[in-house]
Computed example of a mutant assay.
Amino acid sequence: MGGSGGGGYVPPQRSLFDCETGIITVNVSSINVTVLDKHDVGDLLGVEIGSNDALILEDGDGEILGAILHLNTSDIIACINGGAEYEAKILDIKSPACKVQIKRR
């Protein structure tokens, strides 16, 4: 079987993130393992805008767990700048990896 001729790769279109109802599930990037060790599945973290306009996860002690890199990161930042507040629930921990679900508070 041969491949199809012609056209190049067309990436899937990014879906628009809704500030009210949008939910993303994502692996945390740049994890601070020391902070991760203090948390369990089900814990809630704040979703904040950090330095360099990075989207970060912060616990109740003000410690940063890590960053969020996702297609909708810029959308969430725009929603936060518009007054929306988000939280991240820890879904899975396989240190040093951590998966969270981000949704509006």
Rank of each mutant, 00 (worst) to 15 (best):
T21S: 15
D43W: 01
D92T: 06
I90V: 14
M1D: 09
G22C: 11
V26F: 02
V41T: 10
G82Y: 01
C79R: 00
N52Y: 15
P96Q: 04
A78F: 07
S51R: 12
S30Q: 13
L91R: 10
H39C: 01
I80S: 02
G62K: 05
G5E: 11
R14K: 05
E63G: 00
N52S: 14
A97Q: 08
H70Y: 10
D18S: 13
G50F: 08
G50A: 09
D18T: 08
D59I: 01
I90F: 03
G60W: 00
G22H: 09
G66T: 03
G7V: 09
T73Q: 15
T21Y: 12
N81S: 02
S15N: 02
S29C: 12
I90A: 09
L44Y: 10
L57K: 03
T25K: 09
C19D: 09
A67N: 09
G3L: 11
C79H: 00
K89Y: 02
K99P: 00
H39P: 01
I68Q: 07
K89P: 03
K94S: 13
I49P: 07
T34H: 15
I24R: 12
Y86P: 00
G3M: 08
V41A: 07
G22D: 09
K99D: 06
T21N: 15
C79V: 01
L57T: 04
A84C: 05
G42D: 05
I64T: 14
S29R: 11
G62M: 05
V26M: 08
S95M: 02
A54I: 04
S74Y: 08
D61E: 06
V100R: 00
V100M: 02
T73K: 15
I93T: 03
D75V: 03
K89R: 07
G8R: 13
Q13G: 05
V47A: 06
I102F: 12
K103Y: 10
N52E: 15
G60H: 00
T21L: 14
S30V: 08
H39L: 14
E20Q: 15
Y86T: 05
L71C: 02
T34F: 14
I24V: 13
N52M: 13
D43L: 06
S4T: 05
D59L: 02
G22F: 06
E20Y: 15
G66Y: 03
I93D: 04
I90Y: 02
T21C: 11
I77M: 10
K89F: 00
G2S: 12
G60K: 02
V35I: 12
I64E: 14
L55W: 06
L65F: 06
V26E: 15
I23T: 14
